[in-house]
Design a binder for these strands. Structure first.
Length: 289
DNA sequence: AATGAAACCTGACAGC
DNA sequence: TGCTGTCAGGTTTCAT
């Protein structure tokens, strides 16, 4: 389901709703392979913690936790360090990957839980935080503070030079590289196709055959597409909804994804769909070289 | 090293 | 009504 813009939207929504709340109890379905950490470990760590922040790293949702009733440590020690030192992370982190069909909702306990609910956290405010995932490609795990490795660089934080260097000289098709989370984290099938269209590059072009100018254009395209999508709350292609149950609207702005056979918006050539690396790729055979 | 297919799962939808 | 086949926003693992 979710790529960077959807996960960003969900994480912001969750932060607004549950930051500051505390986890009192937990229920887990135990169904594999939902749990990357053992369910018993998750059940042992989460209750008794408070949610300091909810944020996104790549396609992961990160819950920064701290032990309930314990104040943040004084930060005097950090003073001597450089201004660039990262904020101290007090407690464990709960990491949620939504896979293809994962959803997180804040519910009243009186609401019946839907099929494929795999985790329910009881919050001190009386509400419940629920994780629902029909296909079970999502993953839940806990890590100790600062131990989480999300992969490559953030597309919206990387500078142009680093971006170009990530791809320059690689023999792999540029779309494979864009989807490789160890290089760039957060871009998935929709936004790879949309970015490549805007940059005028075919998905199968080998990265090594792209000029610096083309890579710079791709850099701009990726950032524009992601920013526009976040502004519209993501793309709701089939069942994606954010933490408030609201659909996104970026699917209305797709120029190639899901538009096979329809006319290209800039040249009227029918959009093509080809399958490679096991996924659909959509492109305009005229505009993209 | 690097491509690519298969596997992990369920549900929706099209066609017969 | 029901069967079969295809497709789906992701990632990992195994074979070539």
């Amino acid at each position: 389901m979710p790529e960077l813009p959807e996960v960003e939207t969900i994480a912001r929504g969750l932060h607004k709703r549950v930051a500051g709340d505390c986890i009192e109890d937990i229920w887990l379905s135990g169904k594999s392979p939902t749990f990357k950490s053992k369910p018993a470990e998750i059940a042992a760590i989460l209750p008794g913690t408070c949610i300091r922040a909810v944020r996104r790293m790549g396609k992961h949702i990160v819950f920064d936790l701290e032990s309930a009733g314990r104040k943040k440590k004084p930060q005097g020690i950090a003073k001597a360090k450089s201004r660039k030192a990262p904020a101290l992370v007090a407690g464990p982190q709960w990491i949620v990957h939504l896979g293809m069909t994962g959803r997180m909702v804040v519910s009243d306990p009186s609401e019946e839980s839907v099929k494929h609910t795999h985790a329910v956290l009881g919050l001190a405010s009386g509400r419940e935080l629920r994780f629902i995932d029909p296909r079970r490609f999502g993953r839940l795990s806990v890590v100790s503070a600062g131990n989480f490795e999300a992969g490559g660089v953030e597309p919206l934080e990387v500078n142009r030079e680093r971006f170009v260097e990530l791809f320059r000289g690689r023999k792999t098709p540029i779309k494979s590289a864009l989807l490789n989370q160890k290089l760039l984290r957060g871009v998935g099938n929709i936004y790879a196709d949309e970015s490549l269209f805007r940059a005028g590059i075919r998905p199968r072009r080998r990265a090594s055959t792209l000029s610096r100018e083309q890579l710079e254009r791709l850099y701009v395209s990726v950032q524009e597409v992601l920013k526009e999508a976040i502004a519209l709350g993501g793309s709701s292609v089939s069942d994606y909804v954010d933490a408030d149950g609201e659909e996104g609207f970026f699917q209305l702005k797709h120029r190639v994804y899901g538009r096979e056979g329809e006319r290209c918006l800039s040249c009227k050539t029918p959009i093509k769909r080809v399958v490679f690396i096991g996924r659909s790729s959509h492109y305009c055979p005229n505009c993209q070289k």
